[in-house]
Design a protein around this nucleic acid. Sequence first.
DNA 1: GTCTATATCATGATAGAC
DNA 2: GTCTATCATGATATAGAC
Lengths: 203, 203
Amino acid sequence: MKENDNSTEQKILSAAEEVFHEKGYDGARMQEIADKADINKGLLHYYFKTKDSLFEAIFSVAIKTMVSKIQNILLMEIPLEQKMEKIIDEYMDMLARNSALPRFVLNEVNKNPDNFITKHVNKNIPPIFAAFIRSVDKEVAEGKIKPIDPRQLFISMISMIIFPFIGRPMIQIIMALDNKEFQQLIKERRTHIKLFIKNALRP
Amino acid sequence: MKENDNSTEQKILSAAEEVFHEKGYDGARMQEIADKADINKGLLHYYFKTKDSLFEAIFSVAIKTMVSKIQNILLMEIPLEQKMEKIIDEYMDMLARNSALPRFVLNEVNKNPDNFITKHVNKNIPPIFAAFIRSVDKEVAEGKIKPIDPRQLFISMISMIIFPFIGRPMIQIIMALDNKEFQQLIKERRTHIKLFIKNALRP
DNA sequence: GTCTATATCATGATAGAC
DNA sequence: GTCTATCATGATATAGAC
């Protein structure tokens, strides 16, 4: 990193990340970002001419955080079960540190899928996923796991990992959990997901 | 229903539902709702004095749609497996008809959990969920299913049902699916989820 | 680079004619 | 009930002094 972490630009980016992640593009206010960065609106516009340009800076990092980790693990030359366990562990670690991230990204992508594709999508994602399909199909053919649609398996795994962070307040209400109890549940969750998938796949 | 479906109020509510579900509270514009209802802003404010009051009308229906179905099924006196299968079938049917609903509700609840609790939560939800816990524990004790934390099981089931509707554009990109292929995947999904859970739980 | 002041514009909301 | 016209506010963005 050649930038000073306490540089004005860095303060702006940190503040903007916080506000955009929490409130989304529509709910975010340039004034609030300026306040949180401890500068005034004029200076904020000096660094980022428009709200859009500031948003793009935040969003591109967010989308990268969301996809690159999975992408890297999918590319590793390790057995399927280890691959899935690694995704579960590392993705849940990342989400525990950035719990507002998935809601933010999924929302903004939904609001403007085309912009998302043209500006932010890595063209070699589908081939990487195709490799996942092949490795599942191979294990099925070898009788190591029960027959299953690899796409459904992948969606189920991702769903079980991400959803609790999006549905948190609802889950807490339904199950009458305070914050500490919810944290504990999340902590235990990676073990649950691994075992759940393993059991579902056993022949 | 004693109301005329083509009454002005009904046209407003339909338009508002569409706009709020799609864009959320912050992104929704009274002008767009008026346009979609084919009236002008003045008349819109005559029926609903503030944006907030109109939002509340839409949100209270949305939250009810999200929770009442599960609630009703959980109250039925049927075996656990049937209960879960019924939730999967009926919830996926409902979401297929209202695909923007979960993102909308989860987002707004997240933005203001307290308001959600005080205004919209049915106080007897936690007891209903406690009954689900008991029925899972019972089946575990009888050796009919593998030992499992009922809360994790419930979260996993709900995650697998709801997430695809929230993560749709991302899933389509990663898997390179067009709209028709995605619809087909969703159609097959209920079978997948039922079998996946059944397999995971078999002793 | 940083600040204050201001322009510009969009949006929610109201007033009043019909 | 329905419309047009208008207000008041607040948000993005710019201009210009230091």
